[in-house]
């Protein structure tokens, strides 16, 4: 999934929908959506989304690329999979939203790039790839400060009590980060996987 999705040229342009059908994991089933609204009705955070999944899918069909990729729907989804197990047409809603999130960040939509989710993912990815394990201290630390220095200190202070409780109960280690032995091997595998993802325009198969 590396090609830039086409911009809609007219108000209603199927180009974007077609691109999503072909390049987004589970997108092939999107065409089967019958707009029943079961997904949005099952969604625990539907009311705080700009658009619930049903509406978002209609907007994809209508070629409203910018509105779709800058919507906060992608950043409110809590991955509860209610929609997936309930959809009468077996549309893998959550998987589609996850993939659209990747597209939105990759294409540089401001709302996406600045979302907590994208910043958190960057912090998480740093720890996961560099050490092979996620160290909650590194992830949260990097995440807090990704908003700027003062915001970082504030959030850090707000969470000092939680952190201290975690230390006391031996659920937050104090030593060096946990590392895997095969860090080099993991990097080789992930570099190759990135190359694969860039090679074909689809490839957004996952998670």
């Amino acid at each position: 999934m590396t090609t830039t999705s086409p911009q809609a040229t007219r108000k209603y342009d199927l180009g974007f929908a077609r691109w999503v059908y072909e390049n987004v994991d589970g997108g092939d089933r999107l065409a089967l959506c019958m707009q029943c609204g079961t997904c949005s009705g099952s969604c625990p955070v539907g009311t705080q989304m700009d658009y619930g999944p049903r509406k978002l899918f209609m907007m994809i069909r209508a070629g409203m690329k910018d509105a779709v990729l800058s919507s906060n729907t992608l950043w409110n989804c809590v991955s509860c999979y209610n929609c997936v197990v309930r959809c009468p047409r077996q549309v893998p809603v959550t998987y589609i939203l996850h993939d659209l999130a990747v597209v939105a960040v990759r294409e540089g939509y401001k709302e996406a790039v600045e979302s907590d989710n994208a910043r958190f993912s960057a912090a998480f990815n740093f720890s996961a790839e560099r050490y092979g394990r996620t160290d909650e201290r590194i992830v949260t630390g990097k995440f807090y400060f990704s908003e700027g220095l003062s915001a970082g200190f504030k959030k850090g202070m707000d969470n000092m009590k939680i952190a201290w409780n975690m230390v006391k109960t031996k659920r937050m280690p104090l030593g060096l980060p946990h590392k895997i032995k095969g860090k080099g091997e993991l990097k080789t595998i992930l570099d190759k996987a990135r190359e694969i993802e860039e090679r074909h325009k689809g490839g957004g198969k996952g998670n």
């Binding site: 999130a101 990747v102 960040v105 993912s121 960057a122 998480f124 990815n125 790839e129 993802e197 996952g206």
Partner: peptide
Amino acid sequence: VNHIKGGHAPTTA
């Protein structure tokens, strides 16, 4: 969360 920054194929890998 990793996929948002890390991408899909790498996350699956």
